[in-house]
Nucleic acid binder design. Structure first.
Lengths: 339, 339
DNA sequence: TTGTAAGCGTTATCAG
DNA sequence: CTGATAACGCTTACAA
């Protein structure tokens, strides 16, 4: 069990000083070619690699990015991480992931832990509970220490930092309008409770689209789901009562659940009822019928977030106070659930 | 932008020495109650938190676990991470995630980076390319340095370390037998290329189940898929030629693809053809028809892997050379795709 | 009861 | 050309 090699050991073994070794390995011209080669050969032979922790302490930077998201088992978040990881890796950074599990406390604890030197900056999407409480002191504290944050998807206006979002209102509006253009007249939307801002914004877009075409908007055409695990019953009831010919769903899960409910009711998709969903993930691609979706480009969002954060980390603090909100274009992926 | 508080600054502000501050904050009885309280109040007021990097360097342990997996967008891996994260967090550890993207080189590079002090141990599942090449020098190097590794799912026998797996042979055998018991006679299996060991093992189990019942096994009843992205054509062809009444698929994706192909061919599921898949994820739950699956308990596997790793990290090096392979029981989840 | 000093592994500055 | 020293932030013998 060969212990890890350090500068100190190399120095001892080769009867030189630590600083000589350090300089030789960094190709300093102060060192004679002979000693340099001797040291470099030795280092290569025994596979010396500098200790990252020591470097972090010395340089006051870790080359690590902290990611805090609600859940990793949601495909959208997984794609975002994938995008972050890719860009981060290219630029020599690594990612530390913490899950809040939609809990405010866990979000705070994890953030505190990471903020104490483990990382250089954060990329995060807020937990539902945090959004509900509207308590953002942990974010403020971190920003106050001079540690940058990039928020994505679930963001809040009142925090000054870089943000990567999609234009939820516009996307929902165009999704809704898409159904209207296909000749659907009586639309319903399956959304989340309002404190989840993306749900609220998408509902707003739905409403806007109707009003723009002079169709009156009824509150009863909105279903706001609290508990995604047990949404089947309420979706069935909603669809039965509304007798819609077009449905907008704010995520894939609501959409497939609606699709199943409709089939059970003997409706044919897309002829009797058309469905369009947010989040272009696995379910949409493989459900029967396949679902028309608004793609959220999770990987792009992650990549942009990472690029933005790293840019800020590596700029000489000269981009102070000029925060940017990037709006990522969504894409409409047409499949079988719409005519 | 309040700079981060350190022991040094507290010491200066309060006109005491650094070690006094350190001791006071750790409730040392060496320190008088007055100074202790004074220091603790000050620390609390300005929200002092010790720097993790400094602690890591001092203690020679980071309280971080490195995870290396092929992809995060695969639901199974996401559930495993979720399980790891949960257990790790409970025990005061955090997770650093690196993705190999099924590439050998990326796996090696990432592992090297993490091994240089950033983490205390690894949890990993090998990339396809690594399995194909059978080159495990990077694993050996890490183990040689005394850094523990726990492998899961895609493991190799020749590396001595703890492993968390499912009994792929037995699971495939029981899945196959399940179809036979339901009266199916002519079975096919959709698997991966053989160097992916789980594919190979599951194919083996399929074969075993047939032989055990005295049914002869034909090589032609195995489809080995190389490229999961473009498997539709080959699956269609395979199903048409074989005219099976029961299909085992080594993952969800192959299963839904098969399901769609069969429906297109006018077959009814499960009456004409029954399907059983590995990996109980989103697709199986929401496909039409829903799929009967072998649940791999990703979250459990992750939790066990984390627990095992941490146990090894925190034991006083007295469990040397006694590596364990934990076999996690799979569960059969019956849904609509089987009678 | 408090302070000094060494050490974790590096790098950078300054002497020799 | 080479080496000693300080520093990053912290803990912990050991002195005072």
């Amino acid at each position: 069990m060969a212990q890890k090699l350090t500068l100190k050991k190399i120095a001892q073994d080769l009867n030189v000083s630590i600083s000589t070794v350090s300089k030789a390995l960094r190709d300093s011209h102060e060192i004679s070619v002979e000693t340099r080669d001797k040291i470099k050969d030795y280092a290569k032979k025994y596979n010396y690699k500098p200790n990252n922790i020591a470097l972090s302490l010395k340089n006051q930077k870790t080359k690590k990015i902290g990611i805090i998201i609600p859940e990793i088992v949601h495909h959208f978040f997984a794609t975002v991480i994938s995008g972050i990881e890719k860009v981060a890796n290219e630029k020599g950074y690594q990612v530390i992931i913490c899950l809040s599990g939609e809990s405010f406390d866990k979000e705070v604890v994890n953030m505190d832990m990471l903020a104490n030197g483990s990382i250089d900056g954060f990329i995060m999407s807020l937990s539902k509970e945090t959004l509900e409480r509207q308590d953002f002191h942990h974010l403020r504290e971190v920003l106050n220490q001079g540690m940058p944050i990039v928020m994505f998807d679930r963001v809040v206006d009142s925090i000054a930092c870089d943000k990567i979002i999609i234009d939820d209102v516009a996307a929902a509006q165009s999704a809704t309008d898409f159904l209207l253009r296909k000749g659907k007249k009586n639309l319903g939307i399956i959304s989340t409770v309002d404190y989840v801002n993306v749900g609220k914004l998408r509902t707003q877009g739905f409403k806007d689209a109707l009003l723009k075409r002079g169709i009156k908007f009824k509150e009863s055409s909105v279903l706001r789901i609290e508990d995604a695990e047990n949404c089947t019953k309420s979706i069935e009831k909603f669809l039965k009562q509304g007798n819609y010919d077009g449905v907008v769903a704010v995520n894939e899960l609501f959409a497939v659940t609606a699709s199943k409910a409709l089939k059970k009711m003997g409706k044919s998709i897309p002829d009797d009822v058309a469905i369009i969903a947010f989040t272009d993930g696995m379910l949409s691609k493989y459900a029967s019928p396949t679902l028309t979706t608004i793609g959220q480009k999770g990987e792009d969002m992650g990549g942009l977030a990472a690029a933005k954060l790293i840019e800020r980390l590596e700029s000489k603090h000269d981009m102070e106070e000029s925060y940017e909100t990037v709006i990522v274009k969504t894409s409409l992926v047409e499949r079988e659930s719409t005519p």
